[in-house]
Every structure is written in C-alpha cells, then in structure tokens.
C-alpha cells in the first residue's frame, strides 16, 4: 500500500504492507533510527513521536493510519546544530543513563511544553506516565524538563541538584 505523510517538515512516501507499524516505517523506510522500539506492547513509550501535535506511540499504530499526517521525530528537534531546549535539558541535567528511553521521553516532554511551558513537577510526571525509564528513577528527567521549561520561557534554569547547598 502506498502511504505518504510529512515527517520532520519533509514530504515522505513509501510502499508498505497494511501491517507495517508506523515505527518500522520510520526506522526502516526512512532510516530515522532515533525512534526506538522498546517493549513492543505499548507500555514503554520509547517509540513516542509527535503526530499532529500530540505524542503517540508509533509501535501501536499502523503506518497507513498516519496517511496524510504530520510527524515529528527526535531527529526533527535540533535545528542548525542547536539542540532543542528539551534535548539541552537532558544533557545539562543528566536526564539519561543508557539513553534507550530518551527519544520517547524527550518527545513526550516537548509535547507537554508546547501545551504548557510552566508545568508543575506533578504535571511533568503525569505527562511522562506513558514513558518507562529503567535507569534513572525519573528524578533527573523531571529536572531536565524543568530546565527546558525555563529555557522556553526565557528564564534562567534552576541550578542543578548537585550544586544546591554546596
């Protein structure tokens, strides 16, 4: 079946089976391998992409369901060599260890900040409810999103934990 959509601002199309999952179309047809395949059961969120402004799990969608839609993957965030504020936050606040969940965490967080650039800690934790991290215990991920929120608002990010009280 022919499928076409906009990915990271560019028109793409391809010939897929009906059963081809969106994540496989993105990784194998478009060679955008930043979107990860984690649990395969819809729980882990490593495959999260932004589809028509909403975070969705690309392992739980058929490529043909995305016909005509507009998708942003992790590769579409940085521009001109500049990291997106959420990517910068994960770097600056050590929001990852093994990095496997990171693309999904970042896409969910980007979608959150586009709706609400000043989320509370509870709102941040709620927005990544569908993303599992098995390394970090989420603490630094939350700090990374807080950092990014401050950047998006044009404010000075809070100092890192490891400097507080030192």
């Amino acid at each position: 079946m022919q499928v076409s959509m906009t990915v990271n601002g560019g028109e793409v199309s391809g010939d897929v089976e009906a059963r081809t999952l969106l994540v496989h179309f993105i990784r194998e047809n478009l060679h955008l391998t930043g979107t990860h395949v984690g649990c395969e059961s819809g729980y882990c969120g490593a495959c999260t992409v932004i589809l028509d402004s909403k975070p969705v799990k690309s392992c739980s969608m058929l490529a043909v369901q995305a016909e005509g839609s507009s998708i942003t993957t992790i590769e579409g965030l940085a521009s001109n060599g500049e990291l997106h504020p959420v990517q910068e936050g994960f770097w600056e606040r050590h929001g990852l260890q093994c990095g496997f969940c990171t693309p999904g965490m970042i896409m969910s967080s980007v979608a959150l900040l586009e709706e609400n650039d000043n989320p509370s800690e509870a709102e941040i934790r709620h927005s990544i409810e569908g993303n599992l991290c098995r390394c970090t215990g989420y603490h630094n991920i939350v700090k990374a999103v807080e950092y990014a929120g401050a950047k998006v608002r044009g404010e000075e990010p809070p100092p890192p934990d490891w400097e507080e009280g030192s």
Partner: peptide, 9 residues
C-alpha cells in the same frame, strides 16, 4: 485510561 499517548489515539 491508559497514558497520555494512549489517550491521544
């Protein structure tokens, strides 16, 4: 129901 991504679809 589900999580953010599930509720969006």
């Amino acid at each position: 129901t589900g999580d953010v991504q599930v509720r969006n679809r």
